[in-house]
Structures are given as C-alpha cells and as structure tokens.
C-alpha cells in the first residue's frame, strides 16, 4: 500500500493492481497496422484508463501493453476504424481486483 498523494502517477496505481498475465496470448489485437498510421485522432490512447496503447513515433507502430489492461472495453468502442480485435483474456487470466 502506498500513501495517497495526488501526485502519484498511473504507474504507481497500476502497481497496486493484481494481474495474472497470460504470457502466451495477447487478447488485444490490432487488425491492420497501416490503419493506425492513417488514424489521426488515435482515441484508443487517451481513452484507455491504463495507458495500454502507445504510439512509437520512429517505428510508426502502435504498441499494445496488454498486460496492463483493466478489461473495460472502451478501446474497442472508440476506435474509429473498428481496428481492434478485442476479447477478454483467457479464463483465469488478466486483472483480479481485491476490492472492486
């Protein structure tokens, strides 16, 4: 547990969250990388509560840190090109809240 301090960053918060990471399967799949390159807004990045999506400028790819996913489902809805093949992690994997 860490003292509540309004300056804490997201990383500190995610550190408190318990996950069972599925090392074999990524449950968030970008259907077509070219589509993300053309996408101007990239709302997936700002709408994600856990900063799962990050635009890597020099490689021009969308990096997906699926291990941090809180499984809310917002990214799938906000993607203007329906370009995220979204599913929940396999049974037993993913986030496991203590309080909820």
């Amino acid at each position: 547990m860490i003292a509540e301090d309004a300056n804490q960053g997201l990383a500190d918060k995610l550190y408190l969250v318990k996950y069972e990471i599925d090392e074999e399967n990524c449950h968030l799949i970008i259907k077509d990388e070219e589509t993300c390159r053309r996408c101007e807004e990239k709302p997936c990045i700002d709408r994600c509560p856990a900063e799962v999506y990050r635009w890597v400028e020099d490689e021009e790819i969308l990096e997906v840190a699926y291990e941090n996913c809180l499984e809310c489902g917002a990214c799938q809805i906000v993607c203007p090109y329906d370009n995220i093949d979204w599913s929940y992690p396999r049974g037993g994997f993913g986030v496991a809240y203590k309080y909820g």
């Binding site: 547990m1 860490i2 003292a3 509540e4 309004a6 804490q8 997201l10 500190d12 918060k13 995610l14 408190l16 969250v17 509560p49 856990a50 809180l70 809310c72 489902g73 917002a74 809805i77 986030v95 809240y97 203590k98 309080y99 909820g100």
Partner: peptide, 17 residues
C-alpha cells in the same frame, strides 16, 4: 474533495464501463 480523502492510502485503481 481533497480534505475528505486527505491522509488516505491508495488501495486499488480500477476501471469499468
């Protein structure tokens, strides 16, 4: 809001639709 949570410890952060 700040005074109501002052001195607290963060226990969990979560998200849902």
């Amino acid at each position: 809001v700040a005074p109501l949570i002052a001195g607290g410890e963060s226990g969990e952060y979560m998200s849902h639709l």
